[in-house]
């Protein structure tokens, strides 16, 4: 009997999960962070077995989402994002003349200098002690993590 109870419990949970999934897909824009958070829920249910994980679900979800957003500006989207979407549209006047528009930033970049050099961040002033301190531990003379040795 216990077994069947558990099974039915799991089933209902499964349905709840589906419902939650729908809810949360609204909250979550990024599917990556969604999967990340969801695996956390499963661990939680296993350990307690009760349905208390449902409490404040939306709030937890939004918190996790914000955390993810802060941690990772979506670089993948920046790199691989859909850049084909911007179709160039040229208006025609009387079927003969074309309206010439100033080149978009992307267009001008297309004929820029082909150079691998990465320009330095001008906001960094390397005369300030504060900046120097921000890289101190990159050197063997800096602080070492526990478990590591200068040997």
């Amino acid at each position: 009997e216990e077994d069947s109870d558990e099974e039915s419990g799991e089933e209902s949970e499964g349905k709840d999960d589906e419902a939650a999934e729908k809810n949360m897909s609204n909250i979550y824009i990024s599917s990556i962070s969604f999967g990340f958070f969801f695996s956390g829920i499963y661990i939680f249910t296993l350990s307690t077995g009760a349905l208390c994980w449902k409490e404040g679900l939306q709030q937890k979800a939004s918190e996790a989402f914000l955390r993810q957003q802060q941690a990772a500006p979506n670089l993948r989207k920046m790199v691989y994002g859909s850049d084909d979407s911007e179709e160039e549209e040229e208006e025609e006047l009387g079927g003969l003349f074309r309206v010439s528009r100033p080149q978009k930033s992307k267009k001008t970049q297309a004929n820029a200098l082909d150079c691998s050099h990465f320009k330095a961040d001008l906001s960094h002033n390397w005369d300030l002690e504060e900046m120097l301190n921000s890289i101190r531990d990159c050197f063997v003379t800096g602080k070492w993590e526990e478990g590591q040795d200068a040997a």
Binding site: A71, A72, P73, L75, R76, V79, Y80, N133, S134, I135, R136, D137, C138, G142, K143
Partner: peptide, 20 residues
């Protein structure tokens, strides 16, 4: 396509900026 993960430095870490 590469998997791209940003690694933020810990708060008391003095090892420069974000890594990827």
């Amino acid at each position: 396509m590469f998997k791209i993960e940003v690694q933020k430095p810990l708060e008391d870490e003095r090892k420069g900026g974000d890594k990827v």
